[in-house]
Amino acid sequence: MAERGTLRHAAKNWRVLMGGALLLALVIAAVFAKSLAPYDPLDQDLSAQLAPPDWHFAADAHPLGTDSLGRDVLSRLIYGSRVALTVALVAGILTALVGTALGLAAGFFGGWADTVISRAVDIWSSFPPVLLSIILVALIGTGLWSVVAAIVLIDWTRFCRVVRAETLKQRRLDYVDAAIVAGLTPGRILWREIVPNILPLALVLLTLEMGIAVVIEAILSFVGLSISSDAPSWGGMIAEGREVVHEAPWVLTGAMLVLLATVLGFNILGDGLKAELDPVLR
């Protein structure tokens, strides 16, 4: 038993460390974009269009090549992390707040609130999310904040479903009854007794949701429904890279690998956190 426990502990740490390291790189890139990027991401160098990656570290070298307007791919990738991180944080946290609040309400109060919310979750989740996000953004208009709004509107059900189930479980435990007997108001019981027990679960979901949000933003940029195509974003770079994939595969490859690393970072961290926080697994 002891041996198995140590193994699991090591695996969990390995995951949290690796996911955390990938995401730390993302945060550093986003925060220090100005000093890290060798070029201005919008600078066009028409004498060096579609230049291949150049590893000679000369002053005017493009380590990851340039795109069709001669813009430096590495710099655009670094600045693109700002969009990704913004969407991950803002859309992720808003989605978590909306979904968790509705899930708590449905699970704790039950009755018609539960009926309405659960029904909405069922209807919502029967639509393919990608199709829904494209239609939503087309309806509410393009731009970063529309993308955030679309993500919240689509993905709140992920939190709602899980939080509701967990709240129902907690609600049935004796300590909630004890709190009611002790005369605590429902609001206090929710805040003091139930929310702390929901929190670890919500944290894991939030980590996974951030990864999903980054992908949805990239998809909408790729389709041309997010921020303008001049501003550096990974999805936009993917769309451009797809056009010139035969002449300059590095544009698509770079953006794809960065997006892949980010998605895997959130997923690995989420799995690691789940293993660490889940009392059943531990």
Partner: peptide
């Protein structure tokens, strides 16, 4: 963990170009 969008792009790079 990897969405179909990324699988598609990865395939293009690997089996279409490389």
């Amino acid at each position: 963990a990897v969405p179909d969008f990324l699988w598609g792009l990865a395939f293009i790079v690997v089996f279409g170009v490389l």
